[in-house]
Simulated scan of single mutants.
Amino acid sequence: MSNDADLMKLYSARILALAADVPRLERLQSPSGTAHRRAPLCGSNLTVDVTLENGVITDFGQDVKACALGQAAASVVASNIIGCTRADVQAARDALAAMLEANGPAPQAPFDALKVLLPAREFKNRHASILLCLNATLDALDAAGA
């Protein structure tokens, strides 16, 4: 079980600030693709809408009902997703999973701010919530035929 010092390290001021200021919280009216994901261990839920033009994300909306870690990840993703392709999102998702599960490096730009979630490595029960936004975005891109 975690002690208070571990939890303080996990819920840093930067993570809480990101969680408190998640951008793009409006669902899109006519998205190219939509997807919903749920993290089974904690119950976090996230729905993502994307609009694509020539395989590039031109608009993004989300409905986030997640823990602070999931919200922080969604904040970083939403702040940097416009202009990305499916390959960019897949690379970020794979790098984030490797950072959390295999001591890999943080994702590269434009998603390098996800390194703030590095302390969550030790909290495997939080990994699904942290990956939620990128996983849902990939699903929405697939639904759009990207």
Rank of each mutant, 00 (worst) to 15 (best):
K115Q: 01
V56S: 12
G33P: 08
V64E: 07
D94V: 01
G70A: 15
L96N: 15
L46Y: 11
R27N: 07
V116Y: 02
Q29F: 09
R121C: 02
I81K: 10
L96T: 15
L118D: 12
V89T: 05
D88W: 11
P110A: 01
N80M: 00
K65T: 14
E122M: 11
C67F: 09
A91T: 02
A66E: 13
P23V: 12
R37H: 14
L114T: 15
S32G: 10
V76N: 08
V76H: 02
A66W: 10
E53G: 03
L52Y: 13
V22I: 10
A120I: 03
A87R: 11
A97Y: 10
P119E: 05
N54I: 01
S75L: 10
N80P: 04
S44D: 12
A113Q: 10
P40F: 04
N54A: 04
D112T: 11
T58C: 07
A97E: 15
P31N: 07
R27T: 10
A66C: 11
L41Y: 06
A39T: 08
S32Y: 13
T58I: 02
A109Q: 05
T85V: 11
L46S: 12
A91P: 08
L46P: 14
R38W: 02
P110D: 07
L69E: 14
P107W: 12
R86Q: 09
A102E: 09
V64C: 06
A95R: 14
S30Q: 00
S75Y: 13
T51I: 01
K124E: 07
M99L: 04
G43R: 03
E101K: 10
L46I: 08
E26L: 08
D94G: 01
G70N: 15
L25S: 04
E122V: 11
F60H: 03
D59G: 12
R93N: 06
V56P: 13
E26M: 09
P110M: 00
P110S: 03
T34A: 12
S75D: 15
V50A: 08
L52Q: 11
L117S: 14
L114C: 11
A78E: 02
R37E: 15
D49C: 06
D63P: 01
G55C: 01
E26W: 01
N103K: 13
L52A: 12
E26F: 04
Q62C: 09
A120W: 13
G61M: 02
L114P: 15
R93K: 03
N125K: 08
G104V: 07
V48E: 10
